[in-house]
Every structure is written in C-alpha cells, then in structure tokens.
Design a binder for these strands. Sequence first.
DNA 1: ATGATAACCTTAATTATTTAGGTAGTCAAT
DNA 2: ATTGACTACCTAAATAATTAAGGTTATCAT
Lengths: 159, 159
Amino acid sequence: MSHLLDETDIAILNHLQEHGRAQRNTIAEIVNLSVPSVSERMKKLEERGLIEGYKAILNSKKFHFDITAFIFVQVDGSENYANFVDKASEEVEVLECHSITGDGSHFLKVRTKNTGSFEALLSKIQSWEGVSKTRSNLVLSSFKETRQIPVEHATELIK
Amino acid sequence: MSHLLDETDIAILNHLQEHGRAQRNTIAEIVNLSVPSVSERMKKLEERGLIEGYKAILNSKKFHFDITAFIFVQVDGSENYANFVDKASEEVEVLECHSITGDGSHFLKVRTKNTGSFEALLSKIQSWEGVSKTRSNLVLSSFKETRQIPVEHATELIK
DNA sequence: ATGATAACCTTAATTATTTAGGTAGTCAAT
DNA sequence: ATTGACTACCTAAATAATTAAGGTTATCAT
C-alpha cells in the first residue's frame, strides 16, 4: 500500500479531471512512462478511492434546461431533516442537496427547463414538512466549472 | 444531421453520466445494439455537443479538502464585474463562479483544506476591487451529487 | 548481506474499437 | 409504383488499446 503522491500521480489526476476518457498511451506520453505503468497507477488511484469514478458532462443548454438556481431552505425541527433530504434526493431537478451553517438549514442547486417548472418545483418544496422559508437566486451566467480539486495543493498526500 | 433522441440515446447518456469510462460493449449489451452502432451513436452525441466531455471525479475528503462553502459576493459597480470574475477564475480553490439574481451579484462555490485557508481566501476576495459585502455558508454534509441532467425530461429533444 | 517490496520496463496475449462492406427501412421526387 | 438518397443497423476483418507475464533495478528493514 503506497501512501504518497508524486508529481506523476498529480499529472495523471489532473489530466483525468479534464479528460476522463483519456487513453493510457496518451497519458503515458505526457508523464513519460510505459503504458502498463500508467495502468497500474490508475488502478491504484481508483482502488485507494482517490478517483471515485468518471462522468460524462452534458451540455445543459443543449438539453433546454435553461434555469439553474440555488435555493436556501429553512427546515424547522431537526426531526424533519431526514425527510427533507429524502424528498429532495428524489427530485430529478435537484442536482445537489447540502446541509449548511448559517441562515437556512439546507441548500439546493437545481436545474429546470424554464421559469414555469422552476416555480412548480419551488412550490413543491415549500409544501414539504417543516419547510418554513426559502430564498432563491437564479443563475444568469457561469464562469468557471472546471477542475474539482487542485490536487497539487493536497500537501498531506504529496511526497 | 439527426435531431431527436430516442430511448436508446437516453439510456446511453444516462449510463455515461454515471460511468464515464464505460466500454462500448457494456453499453451495447444494455441497449441491445452492436458495438459499432453504439460507437456511432456516442460519436454523434459528442459531435452534436450534447456530451461536452468526460471527467474523473475525485474524492475531496481523501485529498484533505475539508471545507466546502458557498460565498455570496456583492460587487458594486458593474464595471468591476469582469475583473471580479477574472480574479475568481484564477483561484484554484474556487470551483464555480456564477452571476446571479437577487441579493448579491455573484456566487462562488469554494473548496479549501481547512478553516484557516478558508478565512484566508475570504479575506483575499474581500480585498478585490468593488467587493462590498460577502456572506458565507459552510457545507456540513452533502446528500446528492449524482446525475447532472435528467435527460429523459428534455422533451424538445425526444422523439 | 538477504529477502521482501515497489516501480518500472519489454514482449506477448487478450480485448476493445474502428473500418469496410452490405442489408433493410423511410421518405421525397419522379 | 419506382428510384435514389438517407439513415441506422448488422457482421466480419483489421487495427489499436489494454492487460498479463516475466524480468530488472532500487530501496529498505531484518
């Protein structure tokens, strides 16, 4: 069981963050290793759980999902939290559901087809047990949605 | 140039949203097509831009990025917006930067290693030209971060 | 020194992907 | 009703990618 990442691992992780289907020979050229060595490193990064998985990124505009919004929700009574989270997780239009500090107990990122479907979703959420207040912000434009994690900053893991 | 998605396309897209490196023969079994047919469909979905790309998903906890937070920023004077967005985009700890409606002009999703680095980032942001107010919420736990887009709801695209 | 381990390499075997060529169905124009 | 142009699919063959096998070297604790 190896513990630390060297700069080759960092390069591999960073490349895969942007090119999730990159082939091993492409990566091998970038990091100056043989293909089997790259395979082995990738396998270990996956087995260690550093790489959780791979996703295709779809273009939400092309699918006519025009509204992206953030919704703060105040759920009263922590006995209602679990129920709220379950309901939120069932909604396909809810992309993320977070429990947060500060005003509001929960925070949702949602994506709907238009303002109509957004309002419908919002009303539905407001009808859930314990929901007392909501505050929404619609996204006008997004400027950055690239790398998730600056791997090279994970100093604890780096050789 | 084909226009509409059938249920086979939807199944392919949904599978790739969760298994970005899935092999064509695996998908072929799922959708009951030959491997070359799956290849051709994937290529078209990519060429049409419905699939923007593929990403490896890393486990932020394993990298010791313990803080995820949302920051609302009030940038005064729209002449300062472009500068703000540029600066935000340069920060590796800033994962997303959105221009929004409602109170606050911009909204950031950030991820830092600990509360210390979070405070440092926040002070830095507050020092930028035009930034007058910020409001932060730390994420305690996240319950859903799976599919981006419910493809089957894109009625305009579906046959 | 010795043995265990890890990381790398090359070559060969296996598996995945693409290419080539062909069939059937749809549909608009003759 | 036929023709021609598409499109989507198939199978079989060729190519390319990945994994497996076996060996070398370096490190390090015994």
